[in-house]
Nucleic acid binder design. Sequence first.
DNA 1: TTGTAGGCGTTATCAA
DNA 2: TTGATAACGCCTACAA
Lengths: 332, 332
Amino acid sequence: MATIKDVAREAGVSVGTVSRYLNGVDIKEKNKKGITHAINKLNYRVNPIARGLKTNKTHTIGVLIYDLTSTYATTIVKSIEQKLFDYGYNIFVCDYWNNPELEIKKANLLIEKMVDGLIVFPCSYNVDYLHAIQESGIPVVMVNWGLNDFKCDHVLIDNTNATYQAVEMLINHNHRRIGIINGPEDHYIANERLKGYKRVHKDYNIPLEHDLIKMKQFDQEIAYEAFVQLMDLKIPPTAIIACNYDTTLGMIKGLNERKIHIPKQLSVIGFDNLGLSDVVQQPLSIIVQPTEEIGKEVATLMLNRLKGNYDNFPSTLRLKTSFIVKNSIHKI
Amino acid sequence: MATIKDVAREAGVSVGTVSRYLNGVDIKEKNKKGITHAINKLNYRVNPIARGLKTNKTHTIGVLIYDLTSTYATTIVKSIEQKLFDYGYNIFVCDYWNNPELEIKKANLLIEKMVDGLIVFPCSYNVDYLHAIQESGIPVVMVNWGLNDFKCDHVLIDNTNATYQAVEMLINHNHRRIGIINGPEDHYIANERLKGYKRVHKDYNIPLEHDLIKMKQFDQEIAYEAFVQLMDLKIPPTAIIACNYDTTLGMIKGLNERKIHIPKQLSVIGFDNLGLSDVVQQPLSIIVQPTEEIGKEVATLMLNRLKGNYDNFPSTLRLKTSFIVKNSIHKI
DNA sequence: TTGTAGGCGTTATCAA
DNA sequence: TTGATAACGCCTACAA
């Protein structure tokens, strides 16, 4: 591999001149020519490792996600990458398999690799490790995860309103027994979405019924079981809302297995439209997140912080969801 | 950030001793204690960038995939990562959005970041760029993509047999007009899978019918259109096989839309079981790839090459698919 | 077994 | 504007 030294020798100038040229500093036209010639001849490319050693910048952003096979996460990551790439950054995706211990380990790995910034999709509140990272000057942006004690930039969606509006529609169709299949209570997203469910019940003076609220896991199989439990209640719900993609899939599995007709026998609302909407046979109303936009905002925020622009830090962007209404909601 | 120098000073030894300790060379017990103490006190961590500058090793493997949101690819990548991580390597996932130009760009980015090895999921034959990479001593492992002119390690699945056996089962159920929804002919995987389809027709003396063979794109929407075309034939097929996950989804969309009963009205076989099997209402026989095993083999191969073990290079592993048979095949 | 010092490929400072 | 040279943090002869 040719080094800057070789180029300098070949071009008959000093390494300083070559380095300056490489970094966009103006040099004599004549030298410029000689250097580009030498670079081409030697097929020289800068060594970003060596450069990083000196500049402490790698132009690489670490992205820490809970699961690489989560289409929700990868859809957003794709959008993040697209934008960052346009600005000369590339990303380093790490997956921590929903394991908080691994999360810390991998975060440190990323830091060791000298990423210039860190984008995190958390799935627990064990994010103390981010303190040190942020304090060491590395910008941290969190995706769809709220935190009270730790100050960093956030891009969220309006989880509470999303479920509020969806359930409100069910209520307006005279549903009173509405089941909810959700993640665990100590999960930020699950909790926010539960809030919407509760709030709209309160606003419409409908008493909450514990049996109808399934705070389980954001997991297809477990959601399926929750669905079965709901339908096996002495008085089953007349409508069910699933609170993320996996729980929606679990619910669909249950619908298929029990051959429940939508919307005659049951009204349903799902969450996240990640490709399966065409595959399910029955109509399905879906709460949709602006994944593309989320990614863009995350990237923009990160790029600002990297430039040293810390305007209104910590900033919290909250994006609106939309609601695709299909014939899955029945008036009773 | 504390450096090795700081540790040395704190422990009252030389940097050489600290470095040796860090790299597993035996040193005096007393010094060992002093150094570990200093390391803890200063919260010192080696700087892999600096180390990499010296050793030319980053313990990072680049993974180049065509699309980050492809569950097929990420499922395999996850398995790759799992294994590599156990051996002290981590991965750097890059997505080239099915764009051969970007593919080259991103590959070079990865190389610049000094990855020790490169794992590629190609989607075209424009892989000349890999020549130079491999010749520079960086091991390259290719996933499910065959190549005649370029020698590198491969992990494949037995694409041809997969479709052969599936179509054979249809034939044994007396189907003679079997539609196939597949990717483009210049796509390695599509082509291999087409071969199986053709071969079994030949072996059973069934003439091929051009109208039944849809070499389109591995894309849900386009596959849906192909499905419609097949069903709109004057004499539609009695059975259809879809040749990857996306085409399977497209086919299912068509089935739903036309309310075609499986297997009474049509026998169908899909490809790749990536979460959809529970979601579709109708029974679906599926050709399944051993994604976990593919990832493991890719990682193992890579680890060997990294160790300098180039036994039987280039090696081509071909893994068997399995076939989940459900009630989607009707005897006529 | 340990310390010293040179070098990995850059950037950045300082004179010239 | 340029060249020489000292860092950056680590590894590794070589000498002690």
